[in-house]
């Protein structure tokens, strides 16, 4: 009985947040489209989709992680490490390119697994663990490459980052598939529900028999794997491998996820919200750039939007809490257990 009440309460505010985001997105689209005629063209929009793929791919597992109340700051460094391993294993260590790609993906997953293992087995707080590996993985990228870049990949390699399938950039298909897979897992599977439960109350989840540690290990590994995938796409898109690739990506990813309504404290959030946050940030960046605002000023706008969005969400939550407290009977009738308790103590 009480289980049925929980998701209803969870879903309502999220849906509201997504509606707000969607409205802002449509308004931004309309304004930007009237300001410049180069913005609302298919070419430009597809191009923007291409540019946001790497951040988008990493934002999927990041949504899972933040929903559980964790965080992964090492993703940008993982991306850099995987890019360097891809380039170096092919160019300097003589791996065939397909093997090098597999190797990079594997190392990404391994990097994520290390995070997850320390976090679950040794109870290292996710924030500090991933700050440590943020430094370590970037350091490995810099140390292995000695800041040299790798270029001159064969032509077929660029198909993923620069080619198109049915008129849509190839990596957008991958992003689309990832969104669907992660979205379905979060909204429609036991694992997805477990993620919310863990974020809401980890101890209770543990006592309810959820395999909390195994799920956590899985999502941090997935985070590393997606960083590896993003690295592959990134290298293919820009035709070169550098050790500073993806630095600061973690901040873009977290901004998209948080803007999408996922609470950093865990327990709430959806993939749809993260996608809306991602698209909103990318279109804002692009639209402002096209209307003549310089690139650095757009970073400012994004920072402001981020702070404003959590301000508004926090105000909304407060008002809801106040409203809920003002009329307790409504909430109590949803769960007969508490209702009887309430009856016992006047």
């Amino acid at each position: 009985m009480s289980e049925r009440a929980a998701p209803r309460r969870l879903r309502l505010p999220i849906a509201a947040h997504e509606a707000v985001l969607l409205t802002i997105l449509i308004a931004a689209l309309a304004v930007l489209a009237t300001l410049t005629d180069r913005f609302f063209t298919l070419d430009n929009l597809l191009n923007q989709g291409m540019l946001m793929t790497e951040v988008g791919l990493i934002a999927m597992p990041m949504t899972f992680i933040i929903v559980t109340g964790g965080i992964d700051l090492s993703v940008g460094s993982s991306l850099g490490m995987c890019a360097i391993l891809l380039g170096y294993s092919w160019h300097n260590w003589g791996f065939p390119l397909p093997l090098a790609i597999g190797f990079a993906l594997l190392c990404g997953a391994a990097g994520g697994f290390v995070n997850g293992w320390f976090i679950t087995r040794l109870k290292v707080p996710p924030l500090i663990m991933t700050i440590g590996t943020l430094a370590l993985y970037r350091g490995l990228a810099e140390g292995i490459s000695q800041a040299h870049s790798v270029r001159g990949y064969p032509d077929w390699f660029y198909g993923l980052g620069q080619g198109a399938l049915f008129g849509v950039p190839s990596q957008l298909w991958i992003l689309g598939v990832a969104i669907i897979i992660f979205g379905v897992i979060l909204a429609r599977t036991t694992i997805g529900r477990s993620l919310y439960a863990m974020g809401y109350n980890e101890t209770a989840s543990r006592f309810s028999g959820l395999s909390v540690d195994r799920i956590k290990l899985g999502i941090y590994t997935a985070s590393g794997l997606m960083a590896g995938l993003a690295a592959w796409i990134f290298v293919s898109r820009v035709s070169t491998t550098r050790s500073d690739m993806g630095s600061g990506v973690e901040l873009d990813v977290i901004a998209a996820v948080v803007l999408g309504g996922t609470s950093i404290f865990g327990g709430t959030g959806t993939i749809a919200g993260s996608v809306l946050g991602l698209v909103l940030i990318q279109l804002l960046k692009d639209g402002l750039a096209l209307t003549g605002v310089k690139g650095d000023a757009t970073i400012m706008v994004i920072g402001t939007v981020l702070i404003l969005s959590i301000l508004i969400t926090s105000f909304a939550e407060r008002r809801r809490d106040v409203a809920r407290m003002a009329r307790p009977p409504l909430r109590q009738t949803a769960t007969d257990q508490t209702a009887t308790k309430q009856g016992g103590t006047p």
Binding site: L251, V301, G303, L306, I307
Partner: peptide, 9 residues
């Protein structure tokens, strides 16, 4: 994080 973007930009 938001302030980082604002100051940097």
């Amino acid at each position: 994080l938001g302030m980082l973007s604002i100051l940097k930009g």
